[in-house]
Simulated assay, not measured.
Amino acid sequence: MVVEFAVWPALLAGLAGTAAMTAVMVMGRAVGMTDMDIMLITGGMMTGDERRARALGAVIHFVVMGTVVFGLLYAALFAWSDTAGVLTGLVFGFVHGLVVGALAMPMMSAIHPRMRAGHGGFTLPAPGIMGTGYGRGTPAGILLAHLVYGLVVALVYTALV
Results as ranks from 00 to 15, higher is better:
Met1Glu: 08
Met1Cys: 01
Met1Asn: 07
Val2Thr: 13
Val3Ala: 07
Phe5Tyr: 14
Ala6Met: 06
Trp8Ala: 14
Trp8Val: 15
Trp8Cys: 00
Trp8Gln: 08
Trp8Ser: 11
Trp8Thr: 12
Ala10Cys: 02
Ala10Asn: 01
Ala10Met: 04
Leu11Ser: 03
Leu12Thr: 01
Gly14Asn: 06
Leu15Thr: 13
Leu15Pro: 04
Leu15Tyr: 12
Ala19Asp: 00
Ala20His: 08
Met21Val: 00
Met21Ala: 10
Thr22Glu: 10
Thr22Phe: 02
Ala23Ser: 13
Val24Phe: 03
Val24Asn: 02
Met25Glu: 14
Val26Ile: 14
Met27Phe: 14
Arg29His: 04
Ala30Glu: 12
Ala30Thr: 06
Val31Asn: 11
Gly32Ala: 08
Met33Val: 12
Met33Trp: 13
Thr34Tyr: 07
Asp35Cys: 00
Asp37Glu: 14
Met39Arg: 05
Leu40Asn: 01
Leu40Trp: 02
Leu40Ser: 04
Ile41Cys: 05
Gly43Arg: 09
Met46Tyr: 14
Met46Arg: 03
Thr47Arg: 05
Gly48Thr: 10
Gly48Leu: 11
Gly48Ser: 09
Glu50Tyr: 01
Arg51Ile: 08
Arg52Cys: 00
Ala53Cys: 03
Arg54His: 04
Ala55Leu: 15
Gly57Asp: 04
Gly57Ala: 12
Ala58Gln: 05
Val59Ile: 14
Ile60Lys: 00
Phe62Pro: 02
Val63Leu: 15
Val63Cys: 14
Val64Glu: 03
Met65Asp: 00
Gly66His: 10
Thr67Ser: 12
Val68Pro: 03
Val68Phe: 15
Val69Tyr: 11
Tyr74Cys: 02
Leu77Lys: 01
Phe78Leu: 06
Ala79His: 11
Trp80Ala: 15
Asp82Arg: 13
Thr83Cys: 08
Thr83Val: 10
Ala84Asp: 14
Gly89Glu: 05
Leu90Tyr: 06
Leu90Asn: 04
Phe92Cys: 05
Gly93Asn: 06
Phe94Glu: 01
Leu98Val: 15
Val99Pro: 01
Gly101Trp: 02
Ala102Arg: 00
Leu103His: 01
Leu103Phe: 15
Ala104Tyr: 11
Met105Tyr: 15
Pro106Cys: 10
Pro106Met: 08
Met108Gln: 13
Ala110Pro: 00
Ala110Ser: 13
Ile111His: 06
Ile111Glu: 00
His112Val: 06
His112Cys: 07
Arg114Asn: 10
Met115Gly: 09
Gly118Met: 09
His119Leu: 01
Gly120His: 12
Gly121Ala: 11
Phe122Pro: 03
Leu124Phe: 08
Pro125Val: 11
Ala126Val: 09
Gly128Arg: 12
Ile129His: 04
Met130His: 09
Met130Glu: 09
Gly131Asp: 07
Thr132Phe: 07
Gly133Ile: 01
Tyr134Leu: 07
Gly135Ile: 04
Gly137His: 08
Gly137Met: 11
Gly137Asn: 11
Pro139Leu: 05
Gly141Tyr: 02
Gly141Met: 15
Leu144Glu: 01
Leu144Tyr: 02
Leu144Val: 14
Leu144Arg: 00
Ala145Tyr: 04
His146Tyr: 10
Tyr149Gln: 09
Gly150Trp: 04
Leu151Cys: 08
Leu151Tyr: 12
Leu151Gly: 13
Val152Lys: 09
Val152Arg: 08
Val152Asn: 07
Val152His: 09
Val153Ile: 12
Ala154Met: 03
Val156Leu: 05
Thr158Val: 01
Ala159Leu: 12
Ala159Met: 11
Leu160Arg: 02
Val161Gly: 13
